[in-house]
Amino acid sequence: MAVLRRRATHNRLFDTMTALRRALRASLCYYQTLRHKVLSLIEGPRKASKSGAA
């Protein structure tokens, strides 16, 4: 969530909710093109915590 916030909305003021939605949608579409990066962000901490617990 923090990565999306930094890319889409960090330090920006949106005049309308439509503009905010467009920025969020554009960022989500961007991340859809980077599947491996998204998966590493989601799975990375889980793998580390599992290996640390074992």
Rank of each mutant, 00 (worst) to 15 (best):
S49L: 08
S27H: 03
V3G: 02
N11C: 06
G44N: 01
A53G: 08
T33D: 05
L41Q: 08
R25A: 08
T18F: 05
M1T: 05
T18E: 07
A54G: 13
R6A: 07
R12D: 02
R21N: 13
T33M: 06
V3H: 08
R5P: 01
L28H: 13
S49C: 09
A8C: 12
D15W: 00
L34M: 09
G44A: 02
A8Y: 00
L13G: 05
A8D: 03
N11G: 07
V38S: 04
L34I: 14
G52N: 11
T33G: 09
P45W: 02
Y30W: 10
R21V: 13
L28T: 13
D15T: 05
R12T: 03
R21L: 11
A19V: 07
S49H: 09
S49N: 07
H36F: 14
T33C: 05
S49T: 08
T33L: 07
S49A: 09
T33V: 07
S40C: 12
L41V: 03
R35E: 04
A2F: 10
M1R: 03
Q32W: 12
T18S: 11
F14T: 00
L20N: 00
P45M: 02
T9S: 14
L13T: 14
M1G: 04
R35A: 10
L39N: 12
A2Q: 10
V3R: 15
M1K: 04
A48V: 13
K47R: 15
A48C: 10
L24R: 03
I42A: 07
L41Y: 02
R22Q: 13
R6S: 12
L4Y: 02
A8N: 06
L39R: 15
P45H: 03
A19M: 12
R5L: 09
M17A: 09
A23M: 06
R7H: 12
C29G: 05
N11W: 00
T16M: 01
R46D: 03
T16I: 02
K47A: 07
T33N: 07
T9V: 14
R35K: 15
L24H: 04
L24S: 02
D15Q: 14
D15P: 01
T16G: 01
F14Y: 03
Y31C: 00
H36Q: 09
H10N: 13
M17W: 06
S49V: 11
H10S: 14
M1C: 04
R12Y: 10
R12P: 00
S27A: 15
L39Y: 15
S27W: 01
T9E: 03
T9Q: 04
R12H: 12
R46T: 09
K37D: 07
A19H: 11
F14M: 01
A19E: 07
V38I: 10
Q32P: 00
R46Q: 06
R7A: 04
M1H: 05
H36P: 15
T9R: 01
H10K: 15
G44M: 01
L34R: 15
L39M: 11
A2W: 10
R21S: 09
A53E: 09
Q32N: 12
A54D: 12
A26R: 15
R35N: 09
E43T: 11
I42Q: 05
G44S: 02
V3E: 04
V38F: 06
Y30G: 08
R21H: 11
A19K: 14
T33W: 02
M17V: 14
K50G: 06
A19F: 01
R21D: 08
R6K: 14
T18A: 08
R46E: 04
G44Q: 01
A23T: 02
R5T: 13
I42R: 10
Y30S: 14
